[in-house]
C-alpha cells in the first residue's frame, strides 16, 4: 500500500485566451520510506505535481490519496490539518521566521498545532543534532548561513514526523558544497528515520541521492529510473545524465 497515490492527475491553467495543460494525466505513487526525485525542465509540470500532492492546490481532474485520505474530498481547513500533521515542506528560499530562533523555527509546526513544546524538547534536540545545529539552537536566521538555514528548514519539516516530506528545489539557492550537504542530510533522513521524501529539482546531482528519479515532460511522466540501494551516487548521476540526453526537448 503506497503512502501516497496520485491517479490521472490533470491540471489546466487558463492564461488569457490560452489554456495550459500543466499536468496532462499523471499516475504516481510512492511507498513509505522511499526517496523520489521529480525532474524536468521548467514548465514540465514538476512543481505543479508537487503542489497538488502537497494539498496546496486542487487538481482539475484526478485524485490524490495521502495516508489513506482523498484530498479532494476535504475542505480547506481539513486539508490544512493534513498538511500540518502529514506533510513537511522544504522551500528553495528556506522561509524561516526572522523573529524566531533556530529552535523555535523548528518547533513552528508544533506551535501552530497547539502542542505543548516541553513534551517535544528531546525530539527537537535529537533533530537539531541530526541536522548538525545543536550548537546554534538559540541563533536567529540572520545569524545563520544559507546552508544552515536550509538545515533548520529540514528539521522543521521533520519535526511532526510527517507521512511525507516535499522539497521544492531545496538546493536551488545554495552553492555546490552546501547542496551536497543538504542532499546527504535528506538521504540520511530517509535511511535513518525511514522518512518518505519527494524532491523537485532540475539539478541531476541532487537527484542522484534519490532511490527513484521521475522525469516529467509536457505534463506527463516521460521516464522513470529506479536505483539499486548498492549504487553509488556517481553511478546514479551518470545514469540520470544519460537518460536526460535521451528525453527530447519539450514540444
Amino acid at each position: 500500500m503506497p503512502i501516497l497515490e496520485a491517479k490521472a492527475l490533470r491540471k489546466i491553467f487558463k492564461l488569457g485566451e490560452h489554456t495550459v495543460h500543466a499536468l496532462a494525466g499523471v499516475d504516481f505513487a510512492i511507498e513509505k520510506g522511499e526517496f523520489v526525485a521529480l525532474m524536468g525542465r521548467s514548465g514540465s509540470g514538476k512543481s505543479t505535481l508537487l503542489h497538488l500532492i502537497g494539498g496546496l492546490d486542487r487538481p482539475t481532474d484526478g485524485e490524490v490519496t495521502l495516508a489513506g485520505m482523498q484530498l479532494s474530498l476535504l475542505d480547506d481547513d481539513k486539508v490544512t490539518l493534513v498538511r500540518r500533521r502529514n506533510i513537511g515542506f522544504i522551500f528553495q528560499f528556506f522561509n524561516l521566521l526572522p523573529t524566531l530562533s533556530t529552535e523555535e523555527n523548528v518547533a513552528l509546526p508544533l506551535t501552530i498545532d497547539g502542542k505543548d513544546l516541553n513534551a517535544y524538547q528531546e525530539q527537537i534536540t535529537t533533530l537539531l543534532r541530526h541536522v548538525g545545529l545543536e550548537e546554534r539552537r538559540r541563533h536567529k536566521p540572520d545569524q545563520l548561513s544559507g546552508g544552515e538555514q536550509q538545515r533548520v528548514a529540514i528539521a522543521r519539516a521533520l519535526v511532526t514526523q510527517p507521512s511525507i516530506v516535499l522539497a521544492d528545489e531545496p538546493t536551488g539557492n545554495l552553492d555546490s558544497k552546501n547542496s551536497t550537504a543538504i542532499m546527504e542530510l535528506l538521504r540520511r533522513s530517509c535511511d535513518e528515520l525511514q522518512q518518505t521524501i519527494i524532491v523537485v529539482t532540475h539539478d541531476p546531482r541532487a537527484a542522484a541521492y534519490a532511490d527513484r528519479a521521475v522525469f516529467l515532460r509536457d505534463g506527463l511522466i516521460a521516464k522513470e529510473l529506479r536505483f539499486k540501494k548498492s549504487m553509488k551516487v556517481d553511478e546514479r548521476l551518470s545514469t540520470i545524465l544519460k537518460t536526460m540526453e535521451n528525453i527530447p526537448e519539450q514540444s
Binding site: 502537497g54 496546496l56 480547506d76 481547513d77 490544512t80 490539518l81 493534513v82 498538511r83 500540518r84 500533521r85 506533510i87 515542506f89 522551500f91 528560499f93 522561509n95 521566521l97 513552528l108 509546526p109 501552530i112 498545532d113 522543521r156
Partner: peptide, 16 residues
C-alpha cells in the same frame, strides 16, 4: 506574503 504562504503550507488555518 511569502512567509504567510509558508505558514499556511505548514498547516496554519485561515483563522489562526
Amino acid at each position: 506574503t511569502r512567509e504567510l504562504g509558508m505558514l499556511r503550507s505548514l498547516g496554519m488555518t485561515r483563522w489562526q
